Amino acid sequence: MTPPETPTDGTATNGTSSPAVSVCLVHKTDGALPVLKKRSDFLAASRARKQGTKAMMIQARKRRDDEAVDPSLVRVGFTCSKKVGNAVARNRAKRRMREVARAILPTFGQPGWDYVLIGRKNETDARDFKTLQGDLKWALRKLHTPRK
């Protein structure tokens, strides 16, 4: 079945578009953070700074100047091992971490850094959302304070 087209015989009103116009063509600019996708980015973050909270583990890495990524971007990755539970539990934990990162990282994350949020068993999906946000804020403060 083909979608209906805008009439070309002059019966369409001026400015009318096809009723089958997809809203998915619009680019997402709703505050979505650039997401880490390459395994090498996750491995590089795993060798950098780490800070654990009750709900999640946060790995943070300052990118090098010679990397081909915009230095003003804050990138984030999410992962949960099978220890967290079945696919439903892992996906729920990642969804919650995604929302927390979307709310917190634009203001508390530092440009030029990559962050990886790792879910914890029985904690990430069960923790209160405000407390989850507080955990991420606390961990970011700890990660970005200068070491003695």
Rank of each mutant, 00 (worst) to 15 (best):
M1T: 06
T2L: 09
P4F: 01
E5I: 10
E5W: 03
E5V: 12
P7I: 04
T11S: 15
N14M: 12
G15T: 00
T16N: 12
S17W: 11
S17I: 14
A20S: 10
A20T: 05
S22N: 05
S22Y: 04
S22D: 03
C24D: 10
V26M: 09
V26N: 07
H27D: 09
H27P: 15
K28L: 05
K28V: 03
K28C: 05
D30T: 14
G31A: 07
G31Y: 08
A32L: 15
L33Y: 09
P34V: 07
V35R: 13
L36C: 13
S40H: 07
D41L: 11
F42I: 07
L43P: 03
A44S: 06
R47C: 11
R47L: 13
A48C: 11
A48I: 10
A48E: 10
R49M: 12
Q51E: 06
G52K: 01
G52D: 11
T53K: 01
K54C: 09
K54A: 14
A55I: 04
A55E: 07
M56V: 06
M57K: 08
I58G: 01
Q59T: 08
A60S: 15
R61D: 05
R63P: 00
D66Q: 04
D66P: 03
D66M: 04
E67V: 11
E67C: 06
E67W: 03
A68K: 11
A68R: 10
V69Q: 10
P71R: 06
P71S: 02
S72C: 11
S72H: 13
V74R: 14
R75K: 06
F78L: 09
T79N: 02
T79M: 03
C80G: 04
S81T: 15
S81P: 06
K82C: 11
V84A: 07
N86V: 10
N86F: 08
A87E: 14
A87L: 13
R90W: 13
R90N: 13
R90I: 12
N91H: 15
R92S: 12
A93M: 00
K94M: 07
R95G: 05
R95D: 03
R96P: 09
R98T: 15
R98P: 15
R98Y: 14
R98I: 11
V100H: 04
A101L: 05
R102F: 09
A103G: 05
L105T: 02
L105A: 00
P106R: 01
T107I: 06
G109Q: 01
Q110L: 09
G112K: 09
G112T: 12
G112M: 07
D114V: 00
Y115L: 01
Y115E: 02
Y115S: 00
I118M: 13
K121Q: 14
K121H: 12
K121P: 01
N122K: 05
E123H: 00
A126V: 01
A126M: 00
K130Y: 10
K130L: 13
Q133H: 03
Q133S: 02
G134A: 05
D135K: 01
R141N: 13
L143T: 06
H144N: 15
H144G: 15
T145I: 05
K148I: 04
K148E: 03
